[in-house]
């Protein structure tokens, strides 16, 4: 397919990224994204918050500031009560308010299956766009949210997750990547993305694709939600994790001393996951400290290396 383009398309379909960027003038560009999905939690108010946080995340991952949003709603009018719809929209609205984003409108259709999400537009400086493609040798990789939401959500569906675990993962999925993005703006970042459906290794594989650099991950430091490995051991792994692994495992080398369940967690599809940032090596500790001071948990999980035998090495 050929896509129409022009000189003001700074990030478009020719190079898939978290969001598209269109230049208005030398100082200002629009950054746009859209995302919607089926419920990941039972509570409609929390689902609304998670859907909004997830839609906004792509703007943060590009280094942009979200400004406006439009709701996208698919709702089974005949099967569900309107108060479910109302609670869900309220959740989304409250999350937008927290992010200082205004809702300008939206569109809803009747659908046998509930779906909710948003189209989001933000501002970004044309010279400060953070794409997936800018890894530099020596960059340190920082991940801001622990992995395992796909596995835990599968355990919740199976009725096996505790109340405490359910609440923890729900809060995490609803948390904005805003503070992380604000902090990151003051540092030298080579590349950034948010971790979603392809899992950590799927998204990292995209970042190392087509460049002559690899990533070395330090397995022990990668943050993983409590119980994710236990549930993985019980076979509560979403089909998407296996698909991600099948598609990308030839790019990854795992040290034989690691748990055989670790690949499943590192390929686990994440809902509203954290940011993966590649920061200049001299600034990594400072960035981590600044994130913590702003209430964002993060960990140094690896480094970008030259002449790697594999695009990704986990050791």
């Amino acid at each position: 397919m050929e896509f129409p383009t022009n000189a003001d398309v700074l990030v478009g379909l020719s190079r898939a990224d978290d969001a598209g960027v269109y230049r208005i003038n030398a100082e200002l560009a629009l950054v746009q994204t859209v995302d919607f999905f089926t419920p990941v939690v039972d509570d409609p108010y929390w689902f609304g918050q998670i859907a909004a946080a997830n839609a906004l995340s792509d703007i943060y991952a590009m280094g942009g500031i979200p400004k406006t949003a439009m709701n996208l709603v698919c709702f089974p009018v005949k099967k569900m009560e309107m108060n479910i719809l109302r609670a869900m929209i309220q959740g989304g609205l409250d999350k937008l308010t927290e992010a200082e984003v205004v809702l300008l409108g939206g569109h809803s259709v009747e659908d046998p299956e509930l779906k909710y999400g948003m189209a989001v537009t933000g501002f970004i400086h044309p010279e400060k766009i953070l794409t997936k493609n800018g890894l530099r040798p020596g960059d340190i990789l920082i991940l801001t949210k622990p992995l395992g939401t796909g596995i835990i959500n599968t355990a919740i569906k199976a009725g096996l997750a505790s109340q405490e675990t359910t609440e923890r993962v729900t809060r995490q999925m609803a948390a904005l990547n805003r503070n992380a993005a604000d902090v990151m703006a003051a540092f030298s970042i080579g590349a950034c993305t948010d971790i979603t459906g392809f899992g950590l290794l799927g998204h990292l594989a995209e970042m190392t694709a087509g460049i002559n650099l690899g990533a070395r991950l330090w397995a022990r430091t990668i943050p993983i939600l409590p119980e994710a490995l236990e549930f993985a051991a019980m076979g509560l792994i979403p089909g998407g994790a296996y698909k991600n692994k099948e598609f990308r495992e030839s790019m990854v080398s795992f040290s034989s001393s690691l748990s055989p369940l670790l690949p499943e967690v590192l390929f686990d599809p994440q809902t509203s996951g954290g940011l993966l940032m590649a920061v200049a090596p001299g600034q990594a500790e400072d960035l981590l400290q600044a994130l913590k001071q702003n209430g964002v948990s993060g960990a140094l999980i690896g480094e970008v290396v030259r002449n790697a035998q594999y695009p990704i090495i986990v050791e």
């Binding site: 076979g235 509560l236 296996y242």
Partner: peptide, 9 residues
């Protein structure tokens, strides 16, 4: 995926 999950379980 189901096969691997059942084996694990």
């Amino acid at each position: 995926a189901a096969k691997q999950n059942i084996c694990r379980f």
